[in-house]
Write a protein that binds this DNA or RNA. Structure first.
Length: 403
DNA sequence: CTTCCACAGGAACCAGCGGACC
DNA sequence: GGTCCGCTGGTTCCTGTGGAAG
């Protein structure tokens, strides 16, 4: 093979992706497989908007990655386009993600901007922004469908006042109407709402069931066709991504992430196609990121407890509450902070257990008492490297490492 | 059969803090 | 601009307990 051939070959091999954007979770494809029923129901409920009538408020719930956001955006966009083509201009809509727009002020400000009302970033009362939004909307003479995605974030942080105001907005409007769509993946959230809001918001309810493994395969195949070059995917790759994601309550987002990351890994190392091996590595990478994020955000004492467990389990198979506590005490003294009581440490160990970072099981050692045996469920090296990034612990961790 | 270890984990209470409410 | 209130993360004090050892 000539040098030129090799070069061309190499260049070709880098060509795994045709368009990786298509695998991003916020990309909305032209068709949404296995959500036909949901699309139909949602469209039926929203249809009156085209004629300028107010659709029922809707509450949508389902676990992460079940297509709630995609379906909602898809239906609204289609309806809007269709209405435009027919020369109807009776409704408008606003999509707000409450995780990003997480204060009542910003929610109202964003709504106001949708109805061409400009409000300052700050300086006026929240209720004033709301009033201006209503005035602006009323002038437009339209039905406005407001989508509040991840609505539980907003309510948890700032209460249900926003919802209360919005559900009652119609009483204050003369020419326009509003209709709400609330989306959440927290099933229990509904219970925490004021009954009046609940009944008003839940005029219609839509539940999105998780995808099963076969459905995930369809979704992945459809996207992969556009995202990857032909023959860039080995057999079994799609099936594996689907199976792994199905294990996590059928999360389509996770399935897409797996496929995307696997593709990126393959491309990075110049492979000619994505293999199952790449998928497993993608899973590990995703898992690693998750754990790193988790460890980073742990409070200081929890980090110290984790550090003691890590050090001890590197020496022995497992450790116990008592051992952990004595070692933790030393560590605390070492970096010059006040130690917590054993009672509290016991709880911290339980919390680490809940997070899946350690494994703690109560056992009785007869004569030698009752205790928890604690093992580490993640890679100890990873723990050390993440903890050493904490300036308060860096020195300590390095000292431990050097032994 | 009893004892007794080494904790588990419940209950009550407390300090500090951010937000609601005059 | 004080004060009241509920929440979080902590403490103190406590009773409970499975099973090896004696």
């Amino acid at each position: 093979m000539s040098i030129i051939d090799e070069l061309i070959d190499k260049a070709m091999r880098r060509h795994i992706f045709k368009n990786r954007e298509i695998l991003r979770p916020d990309y909305i494809p032209d068709t949404l497989p296995h959500r036909e029923n949901e699309i139909k129901r949602l469209a039926e409920i929203l249809l009156p908007a085209i004629r300028g009538e107010r659709p029922s408020n809707i509450f949508i719930y389902g676990l992460t990655g079940t297509g709630k956001t995609a379906v909602t955006k898809y239906v609204l966009r289609k309806l809007y386009e269709k209405a435009r083509i027919k020369g109807l201009d009776n409704f408008t809509y606003a999509y707000i993600n409450c995780r990003h727009t997480d204060t009542p002020y910003r929610v109202f400000a964003e709504l106001a901007s949708k109805v061409n009302v400009r409000v300052p970033f700050t300086g006026i009362a929240t209720s004033e922004v709301f009033k201006r939004f209503l005035r602006g909307l009323d002038k437009m003479n339209k039905v406005m469908i407001i989508v509040l995605d991840e609505i539980d974030f907003l309510v948890r942080k700032h209460g249900d006042d926003v919802l209360y105001k919005l559900t009652r907005a119609n009483e204050m409007l003369e020419n326009s109407k509003v209709s709400l769509i609330g989306i959440t993946n927290d099933i229990n959230f509904v219970e925490t709402l004021d009954p009046r809001i609940r009944s008003s918001l839940g005029e219609e309810e839509l539940v999105f069931p998780p995808y099963d493994s076969l459905q995930l395969e369809d979704i992945l195949r459809q996207r992969a066709k556009e995202a990857f070059n032909p023959d860039a995917i080995d057999s079994g790759v799609i099936e594996l991504c689907a199976a792994l994601a199905a294990r996590e309550h059928g999360d389509a987002r996770r399935a897409l992430d797996l496929l995307r990351i696997a593709g990126e890994i393959a491309e990075r190392e110049g492979a000619s196609k994505v293999t199952v091996e790449h998928v497993y590595r993608a899973r590990d990478e995703l898992e690693k990121n998750r754990v790193e994020e988790l460890l980073k955000t742990l409070p200081l004492h929890a980090k110290l407890v984790l550090l003691s467990i890590t050090v001890q389990t590197m020496k022995n198979k497992y450790t116990t509450t008592g051992e952990t506590y004595t070692y933790y005490t030393e560590l605390a003294k070492n970096i010059g902070i006040e130690k917590l009581t054993q009672r509290r440490i016991s709880d911290l160990i339980n919390e680490l257990d809940m997070l899946g970072i350690v494994n703690a099981k109560v056992i009785s050692r007869g004569r030698y008492g009752k205790t928890k045996i604690i093992t580490l469920s993640i890679n100890p090296k990873l723990v050390l490297s993440v903890l050493s990034e904490d300036p308060r612990l860096a020195e300590l961790v390095n000292h431990i490492r050097s032994r």
